[in-house]
Amino acid sequence: MSTLLEMSGVSVSFDGFKAINNLSFQIGEPEMRAIIGPNGAGKTTFMDIITGKTRPDEGRVIFGEKSMSLLGMSESQIARAGVGRKFQKPTVFEAQTVRENFALALKNPRSPFDVLLHRKTPAGADRIEALAEQVGLSDQLPRMAGELSHGQKQWLEIGMLLAQDPRLLLVDEPAAGMTPAEREKTTDILVAAAQKHAVVVVEHDMEFVRRLNCKVTVLNEGSVLAEGSLDHVTNNPDVIDVYLGR
């Protein structure tokens, strides 16, 4: 497994508060990683830096075999380079069908002319069927996205991310607001995605993290406090003190 993303010595301050403090992190491809930590630990800022939303004050963020620096790139350039992000609240096109949502997300030529002519190709149709199956929405393709349950909207958005064929997926609290059955299925979808992609999941639900069965990175005060299996980090006295003991 080769290293896909490497952050080293990354720091960023907001009004004198160090949100990220000399953070170093790396993930391979394919790999699943869970990020946990107390509120204010820097989890969102960590994702913002990778996706270009926040510029760090120092450090480096290197991506891919060609060691591209993500720091000089815009958010859209980073997305095109292969970094996909799913926010906590699902953002799908509610007035479109599930099939149309997938079609809009497919990695096609994207000039205004192409979008106007939106050609339906057999390859595109096959890809949509495959994506729908991957996220458990095959029987929902004709439905309006707005009619889906909260969990189904989350799956649709994960599928739309996968349609862009990212190398790295950043997923923010996917289990929030889901039923136990939906949480279980979400685990399955992410674990399957991590067979091909690098997947980073920020999550508070420890049972959900346990089911991901992956390496866990604990953030606190903007740096890595501990790293290892869930059992390893949850038995760490510092982690118990700052996070689990609360």
Rank of each mutant, 00 (worst) to 15 (best):
216 V>R: 03
153 K>R: 15
92 V>W: 05
131 L>R: 14
154 Q>W: 11
179 T>Y: 03
136 G>R: 11
107 K>I: 02
82 G>Q: 06
88 Q>H: 00
172 D>C: 09
200 V>R: 14
191 V>D: 10
246 R>L: 00
32 M>K: 03
55 R>T: 14
119 R>N: 12
22 N>T: 11
102 F>W: 04
80 R>I: 10
2 S>E: 08
50 I>Y: 04
195 Q>S: 00
183 R>D: 10
70 L>N: 10
75 E>Q: 05
55 R>V: 08
246 R>N: 02
236 N>L: 08
143 R>V: 03
89 K>Y: 10
217 T>A: 14
86 K>C: 12
109 P>E: 14
170 L>D: 13
21 N>E: 12
81 A>F: 10
180 P>R: 06
132 A>N: 02
215 K>H: 11
100 E>K: 12
235 N>W: 09
35 I>D: 01
243 Y>D: 02
166 P>I: 08
157 E>F: 02
226 A>E: 08
81 A>D: 11
77 Q>K: 15
13 S>T: 05
133 E>K: 04
26 Q>K: 12
205 D>L: 10
9 G>M: 01
41 A>Y: 01
154 Q>H: 14
31 E>W: 12
22 N>V: 04
16 G>V: 05
46 F>E: 11
122 P>H: 12
132 A>Q: 02
107 K>A: 13
19 A>P: 01
84 G>N: 06
239 V>P: 09
198 A>D: 10
23 L>H: 02
77 Q>A: 15
29 E>V: 12
184 E>L: 04
120 K>H: 15
2 S>M: 03
40 G>L: 06
189 I>W: 00
169 L>R: 08
191 V>P: 08
9 G>P: 00
48 D>I: 04
73 M>C: 07
162 L>E: 00
242 V>Q: 10
240 I>E: 03
119 R>S: 13
159 G>I: 13
118 H>C: 04
118 H>D: 14
65 E>S: 13
59 G>N: 05
50 I>R: 09
3 T>Y: 00
123 A>I: 05
60 R>F: 02
67 S>N: 15
209 V>W: 04
95 A>W: 06
72 G>A: 09
182 E>R: 01
91 T>Q: 04
83 V>C: 01
201 V>L: 07
151 G>C: 08
154 Q>L: 03
195 Q>R: 15
88 Q>F: 00
215 K>A: 01
171 V>A: 03
10 V>R: 11
52 G>V: 15
1 M>I: 04
226 A>C: 04
108 N>L: 14
218 V>I: 02
243 Y>E: 03
143 R>E: 06
208 F>W: 07
8 S>V: 05
98 V>L: 13
61 V>R: 07
222 G>N: 02
191 V>W: 01
52 G>T: 13
36 I>M: 07
148 L>M: 14
159 G>P: 07
175 A>H: 04
140 Q>H: 15
206 M>V: 13
126 D>H: 13
225 L>R: 11
143 R>Y: 09
45 T>E: 09
16 G>M: 03
242 V>S: 06
116 L>F: 14
40 G>Y: 03
3 T>D: 00
192 A>H: 02
171 V>Y: 01
239 V>G: 07
194 A>N: 08
29 E>Q: 08
81 A>G: 14
58 E>R: 14
43 K>N: 07
125 A>P: 04
120 K>S: 15
215 K>W: 00
226 A>M: 07
187 T>S: 11
218 V>P: 00
182 E>M: 01
83 V>G: 05
